[in-house]
Simulated scan of single mutants.
Amino acid sequence: MSNLPHPRHLRIHQFAGLQRGPKLLVTAAVHGNETAGVGGITRVMAELDSGELQLLRGSVTFIPVVNPLAHRLGRREGERNLNRNLRPPVVPQDFEDRIATQLCPQLAACDVLLDLHSFQGQGKPFAMLGPRNNDGDLEPFAYELAEGRLAACVGTERIVEGWLSTYALGLQRRAARAGDGSRQAMLQQDPHYGVGTTEYKRSQGGYGITLECGQHLDPDGPEFAYKAILRTMVLLGMLEPGVVEPRPATKPELLQLYEVIDREHEGDSFVRAWASFDPVSKGQQIGTRANGEPVLAPDDGRIVFPASNAQPGTEWFYLARASNRQIV
């Protein structure tokens, strides 16, 4: 671990157009080892600075490294997962709480959020969007169509929905297990724990998506992030359409998360090296618990976010199946 002191500031850049328009926020490295978005943001900012790109209207705010401590350490988290239990803290207790005091107002102030991530396993980029319009207690929302258009424009082959409702099911099971009394255990059992950047944005009005730009070290990740930023700005009328080729003509596959399985012990292991969106059949063995119990797929579908080195008590993998949702 670095002996340098913790970072004492969050670097935020804003380009304000001279014509009124939407307020876009683009973020990256919420998890410190997910750097594709850092490269994409850096390139877009350089082109805005040079005049190669012209901002037609509105404002765009960039936070290229949201978690500078985790980024400096080259790992997912600094002191905890910033993209869980995200809200302005009453009394900051760790580094990520202090970041949240600056990040949450930025999320609340924007109209649209593009949050750039990457993932551990092999696989192609995909987008994650929020719920359908509803007035329920978990995640009330009124921008389903606009958010669907945003998810469709960035150029992925797949779009995934159902994050927070699926996570809530996992939290119910997690809360039933005895914790060790640590802050981490308490956070993981908090009903708010599934809330990250996009969920907090939606709670404050407006909409946003999480864009997974491929595997962490994929050399094409920064280029994908760069084009996604440009496509988003074109969609919002902030850049001329000709600055980037349009999204692929093929309609993306739409999947819905329906289950999350935690890794309960260090000895829990997968039966093979899974990649996100590998197909699984009902009853197929996905992993083995430390006590030898098989972990079986409850239904046909796809495995998402398999994390072979997940910490015990955290999400090990998700399961998804075809969605009947329609997007433009």
Rank of each mutant, 00 (worst) to 15 (best):
G32Y: 06
L230A: 09
E266L: 14
D135V: 13
G51R: 10
G283I: 04
V90E: 15
E315C: 09
L56T: 04
A151W: 03
I229E: 07
M186P: 00
A100T: 14
G179D: 03
Q14I: 09
P131G: 02
L103S: 01
F277Y: 09
D190Q: 05
P241R: 00
A228C: 03
L164Y: 13
L56C: 05
G194N: 02
L113A: 04
A290H: 01
V112G: 03
E52R: 15
G237C: 04
P5K: 01
A142D: 15
I41C: 15
Q172N: 08
G242Q: 06
L25D: 01
E79I: 05
G179S: 02
Y318C: 13
R177M: 06
A273L: 05
G287E: 10
K201L: 03
G292S: 10
G17N: 10
G74K: 06
Q311A: 15
A185F: 08
R43L: 11
G155A: 12
G205F: 03
A185Q: 09
G170D: 00
D262I: 11
R231V: 12
G155I: 09
G74T: 04
G32A: 10
P246N: 07
E161W: 04
R183L: 13
L164P: 04
R247W: 03
D49P: 00
Q14L: 01
P64S: 04
Y200A: 01
V234M: 00
Q172I: 09
S59T: 15
G206Q: 06
T288S: 07
V60E: 07
N309R: 14
F126H: 00
T166L: 07
L230N: 05
L114A: 11
L4P: 00
S182W: 08
Q189N: 12
D94L: 07
P248Y: 06
L255P: 05
G123H: 06
V243W: 11
D135Y: 06
D97T: 12
D220S: 14
D137N: 13
P248G: 10
I286E: 02
Y193M: 05
P5M: 01
E52T: 15
D135M: 06
P246W: 08
Q19C: 06
C213R: 08
L239Q: 08
P89M: 03
P294V: 11
R76M: 12
E52F: 01
G74L: 04
V30W: 01
S281Y: 09
